[in-house]
Simulated assay, not measured.
Amino acid sequence: MARPLTVVTGGSRGIGAATCLRLAADGHDVVVGYVRDATAAESVAAGVREAGGRALTVRVDTSVEEDVERLFDLAEDRLGPVTGLVNNAAVTGPLGRLADADTADLRRVLDVNLLGTLLCARRAARLMTPRGSGAIVNVSSGAATLGSPGEYVHYAASKAGVDALTVGLSKELGPDGIRVNAVAPGLVETEMHTAMGDPDRPRRMAPGIPLRRSARPEEIAAAIAWLLSPDASYTTGTVLRVAGGR
């Protein structure tokens, strides 16, 4: 049987990088989408190849339609039919109250987290529907139901949109043999906390989580890999919370 081919956006670091490596270990070929750090993306691709998979790195801003089209075009031209998509690319903007947020930051969060996910899911649906099979996993957030007051309610709102997309698209594509699910991580040890201006956030917030720790990216990747696997063949429309009990 041919190896599945999965496109992972935001694949050069954090949850995305861990997902690429986990999928390669599970027998996937992987397209590593990244927006800035080509060196990090190539390092992830090297790890995929070491695990026995084929890999391709593609620079893509998922909020730009032309970039998304190019991502999938290159994937299909160079590696073959895309069988899976992990919509992982996301940004938060600086931490703070909504009243203090810049409009540019609000727009960027919505453009990447929601519009970008929609654009990637739309292209994947167009490719997968005629083939009668495929799987999409959207990376949401526990923030979608917690709201994240005082930190990033705009980010939480964008992820609530991802949850709604997941449920609606699963019903739309189910008759075509395509499964659509989401993983909603809680607090995870990634570079995103530094990017939002609070590198110590995982340690500071861990006592408020029932398991009393933040997650490792690999723990989130395991949930994503399961949802893409044949073991989840009757699972669709699910938002799987992986948040340590919070």
Rank of each mutant, 00 (worst) to 15 (best):
L71N: 04
F72G: 06
F72M: 11
L74H: 01
L74I: 04
A75P: 00
A75V: 05
A75H: 03
A75K: 00
A75Y: 00
E76D: 12
D77M: 01
R78D: 05
R78L: 08
R78Q: 15
R78Y: 07
L79S: 09
L79Y: 11
L79N: 09
L79A: 06
G80W: 07
P81S: 06
P81T: 00
P81Q: 05
P81N: 01
P81M: 00
P81H: 01
V82E: 04
V82F: 05
V82H: 13
T83C: 06
G84D: 08
G84W: 02
G84E: 06
G84Q: 05
G84A: 12
L85M: 12
L85C: 07
V86A: 14
V86G: 07
V86D: 14
V86K: 05
V86P: 08
N87F: 10
N87C: 15
N87W: 12
N88C: 13
N88V: 04
N88E: 08
A89H: 08
A89V: 01
A89Y: 11
A90Q: 11
A90W: 08
A90T: 07
A90G: 15
A90L: 11
A90N: 05
A90H: 07
V91H: 07
V91D: 01
V91N: 08
V91G: 00
T92A: 14
T92F: 09
T92E: 09
G93E: 01
G93S: 07
G93Q: 05
P94G: 03
P94D: 04
P94C: 03
P94A: 10
L95M: 14
L95T: 10
L95R: 10
G96N: 03
G96V: 04
G96W: 06
G96T: 03
R97H: 13
R97W: 11
L98A: 14
L98T: 13
L98Q: 03
A99W: 03
A99T: 14
A99L: 15
D100C: 09
D100F: 08
A101Q: 13
A101V: 09
A101S: 13
D102R: 15
D102M: 04
D102G: 11
D102L: 08
D102P: 03
T103Y: 12
T103H: 14
A104N: 08
A104C: 12
D105P: 00
D105L: 01
D105T: 07
L106M: 12
L106T: 13
R107Y: 00
R108Q: 14
R108Y: 09
R108W: 05
R108C: 06
V109E: 06
V109S: 02
L110G: 01
L110M: 15
D111L: 13
D111R: 09
D111T: 04
D111C: 02
D111G: 07
L114D: 12
L114T: 10
L114W: 12
